[in-house]
Design a binder for these strands. Structure first.
Lengths: 333, 333
DNA sequence: CTGAAAGCGCTTACAG
DNA sequence: CTGAAAGCGCTTACAG
């Protein structure tokens, strides 16, 4: 039995005070007598009054919505990362009485995002990935609207939050080199993603630090789909490598599938490690040595940074979060 | 260089007409001279005017947002279904100039959803799953707000869109029975989910139709996590079943993992089928016989049904979508 | 076909 | 400490 929704006017009339006063009692802004405030607050509780977010929004030129931009590319949309991230943002935003609107974009089509901004439906944006050539980022910069990237950007004027992929990859690679891997292969996806560039950088640093040289004929980048990976794995078996390092969980899943098909045993025949861990690897025949990041934490930090920015507070230009190196069965000697 | 945002007032002043007229030219409602309309439309194009969705919303008591409710339970949040579904909704909503806000709820805590509704941030809701005892559903019914469920509900007054899981499961089960499975086990999760009840119903129907009796000692339901499944699989190996039917992709993933650990070969030693297919099974040693549903289509139908309902149009009480039975290696004789 | 005016439900200088 | 009034940027009866 939904009765007519209460407005601030109703309350003012009922209590014989002005709506200005009611508004102040609710928002806590401006001077107001303790008694009056209590009276209003009590009435509100009793009658279950909830202010209209939209009216409040119009008056304050705010929406109390933030946008989470995630890739709509079909192959990527299934990655568990974004879902966990979404969960983290949603919970954090909720606490600040903000809601999150999602927007799907591809590398070449950001029209959904543009529409959202032009319609002024959000106060700020979280970019769920960063690309070398990032249309979304460019667009947002040109609009001068608050946004933060989940992932690094080369543009120092962009507020960014990222896991320290470079250090993490360096560390894991070093561990592998010290385990006396002689013929290690690196297999990765789209190098247009900044995160992959950082992973490669970390890999290189490890070799440098270890004093070994990378065999560039064992580095396969920009693999797009399972087919690509299958072919590469065939070659790697041929070349008799002792370890395959995968740049992310999707690639690693493909590698594992292919190795299984070829009846290659892990870790006996070939060892495997991944620069990113997720549920995609959960089901693998051997538990995979990998890097572990805290997606929920990262989401929370992104969200809070954005909300601060919306409130015109000072925010750090770049926040780097930690990681864990997890050594497991798949790289055992 | 973002200049002051244009408003309907600016346009009216500039063109020496009233804002009423401008509004009409834009919305296309009400009589208006072709010439005037063209003049306005041209001006709008040239100056890239975009109406404020929030002001429009306040005037029309609408938000142009719909909400997608997804489970925030940690174990479930990773299911690919919701992500694909989200993608479908987002695209469909976008076409109608609607945006989608997400809300995470658990079986016992729907506070995020309640807040969203009370703040009046959305015009309608899509419920991403249905439970036997569904707090979200109850709440929405009590609020008399437009909503549709993605999944079946026992309450006939609820607008629902679902895949025909019952028929699908019946059909797949029949196929298996005809393949002369003698000792078939059924393994499933939370029976509080309506979808699981329908799956079980379909399974039963198939036995009835085939004229065989279900061995209830081979039916394991309400399994919650991987541990539960592992134990069950141990028993099933002990009992020497010839086929394991999994109610969903998550359960099936667990079953496959356990069988692999025990070095049970598929399909030679035990056959496996799943009532739901997803990327979670992609990586399995044998391609799994399963049911296939079109998540994107379902999302689109849900979304369009909801939008019609919001516009006070007549909508079907229940829409049932199709499925495909895919027979693959995992059940080969 | 077009416009003046009231209204959507809040907030916020400005006065007092 | 409190209120009258204008304003946020649209829409929509009601007149003409």
């Amino acid at each position: 039995m939904e009765t007519k929704r209460l407005t601030i006017d109703d309350i003012a009339r009922e209590l014989n005070i002005s709506k200005t006063t009611v508004s102040r009692a609710i928002s806590g802004k401006g001077r107001i007598g303790q008694e009056t405030r209590d009276k209003v607050l009590r009435y509100i509780k009793e009658n279950n009054y909830k202010p209209s977010a939209i009216a409040k929004g119009l008056a304050q030129s705010r929406t109390f919505n933030i946008c989470f931009v995630m890739p709509g590319d079909y192959s990527i949309v299934d990655l568990p990362f974004y879902q966990g991230f979404l969960w983290g943002i949603s919970n954090t935003a909720s606490k600040a009485d903000y809601d999150v609107i999602i927007s799907m974009v591809t590398e070449k089509d950001i029209s959904q995002l543009v529409r959202l901004i032009e319609n002024q439906k959000v106060d700020g944006i979280i970019l769920g990935r960063t690309l070398e050539e990032d249309k979304a980022e460019e667009y947002l910069l040109s609009k001068e609207i608050p946004f933060v990237t989940a992932g690094s950007s080369k543009d120092a004027s962009v507020i960014q939050v990222d896991n320290d992929h470079r250090s993490a990859c360096r560390e894991l690679t070093l561990v592998l080199l010290r385990k006396k891997m002689k013929k290690m292969a690196l297999v990765g996806g789209n190098m247009g993603y900044i995160v992959n560039q950082n992973r490669l950088a970390g890999y290189r640093e490890a070799y440098l630090e270890f004093g070994a040289a990378i065999d560039s004929s064992l580095v396969y980048l920009n693999l797009v789909n399972e087919n690509d990976v299958d072919k590469v794995v065939d070659e790697l078996i041929e070349k008799d490598v002792d370890c395959i390092v995968c740049m992310d969980d999707y690639i690693c899943g493909c590698v594992l599938g292919k190795l299984r098909k070829e009846h290659v045993r892990i870790p006996e025949d070939i060892k495997v490690a991944s620069f990113y861990n997720s549920i995609l690897l959960e089901n693998s025949q051997s538990v995979i040595t990998s890097l572990q990041f805290n997606v929920t934490e990262m989401a929370a930090v992104c969200c809070n940074t954005l909300l601060s920015q919306i409130d015109k507070k000072e925010v750090p230009g770049k926040t780097l979060l930690g990681y864990e190196v997890i050594i497991r069965e798949s790289t055992q000697a």
